[in-house]
Write a protein that binds this DNA or RNA. Structure first.
Lengths: 203, 203
DNA sequence: CCCCTTTGTGAACGATCGTGCTAAATCCTT
DNA sequence: AAGGATTTAGCACGATCGTTCACAAAGGGG
């Protein structure tokens, strides 16, 4: 009962790395088994089907993301400081290649967005979760009087997410890390334009 | 010499549709042959290898994109009007699903961004081309005095591209077409903030 | 220490993949 | 209409895919 969990974790650790580079479809049980030097059926039996393996990979990646981005940001107080740390932390998460192929969910979303099914649903749920976290932090900031009361939270969070996603895409595709500076500048400009007190924005 | 071109075009037309949904890797010669009701080797022989087929698909998609977005925008005069039509046209191109899976290059870029090779290079070149077109239009606007002379063209075009890409991603993944309105609002806000004459921005 | 459950192995299956090869069908030229 | 070149069909190959099944190894509880 302990051994099983250990190999399962080892499989998923490799799987998220492969999937972030080659895609969730590029995950093959045979390849996974070969690289981990175990038998193919050993890997297979642990998940029951390829789709289940893919879903488990998405869930594992979600935990990695939360640990890398969300959890640290929640050390900051609710409101503008937390919102900023979510964005800045996301940029760091992408730049440091927590997943070797850049943001796991950016890859997975693009791969499955037009293909209905459980995988797409799982990826969409993860991204909805991220959007909500961002929106919640922005709404807190507004209600705390740190952002102008008239500001459109949906518009703001859409733009923030767009900027950080674009930085990830450009960095991975073109190897151009200046995109992170552009995104950072964009995020700060957006926040400063709506902030009631410029000094409430850290860094 | 005519027959060959005709089937080649038919293959590529189907290929771009499949690839925009299932990815360039999801393209299989056998499937393509079955759906077009021709022989597998007939399809294969026309391209010589799968990679060559994929590269031809990227090239074909590029032409579709130029026809749908770039060419119409170039009917507008250089400068702010053209820049706006590039962005607005891109949003229409995505919303109308010129490719069934949303923007072909958003999919292809996410699929190959972390995998070196000729396909990645072709996709990257197409996106660089698009970025340059956007930047050129913005620079024209600046030199024509339609945008403030101090504005950062790289920052502006990065943000414009980020907004329209995010709208595509969100619409395809979540079926949420309000993203196009958010992107449109974001683009106009960015342009109006830098425009020297608010009435120079059409629509 | 033995038994029984959990966990992993090994071989095999049908399917599909990309890729050659050989012939037949089709087209264009003369 | 005939001949030569292009284009497509048909078949076979090795490889890899996901999946199944019968069996061996290992583990912990009585």
């Amino acid at each position: 009962m302990l051994r099983g969990e250990r190999t399962r974790a080892a499989v998923l650790e490799h799987a998220i790395g492969i999937a972030s580079v080659e895609g969730l479809d590029g995950l093959s049980i045979g390849r996974l088994a070969a690289e981990l030097e175990v038998s193919k059926s050993g890997v297979f039996a642990r998940f029951g089907s390829k789709e289940e393996l893919q879903l488990a990979t998405v869930a594992a990646a979600r935990e990695v993301f939360v640990d890398a981005v969300v959890r640290p940001a929640f050390e900051a107080p609710p409101g503008l400081a937390r919102l900023w740390r979510l964005c800045a932390g996301w940029l760091t998460y992408s730049r440091e290649r927590i997943f070797p192929g850049g943001c796991f969910f950016a890859s997975a979303a693009a791969e499955y967005d037009a293909r209905p099914g459980r995988i797409r649903d799982a990826v969409a749920a993860a991204l909805t979760d991220w959007s909500s976290t961002l929106a919640r932090a922005a709404e807190d900031a507004r209600q705390l009087g740190q952002l102008e009361s008239t500001c459109d939270i949906r518009q703001l969070t859409f733009e923030l997410a767009a900027l950080v996603d674009a930085a990830n895409a450009r960095s991975v595709l073109h190897g151009d890390d200046s995109a992170y500076d552009l995104a950072r500048t964009g995020v700060r400009t957006r926040l400063l334009a709506l902030a009631t007190d410029q000094d409430a924005l850290p860094d």
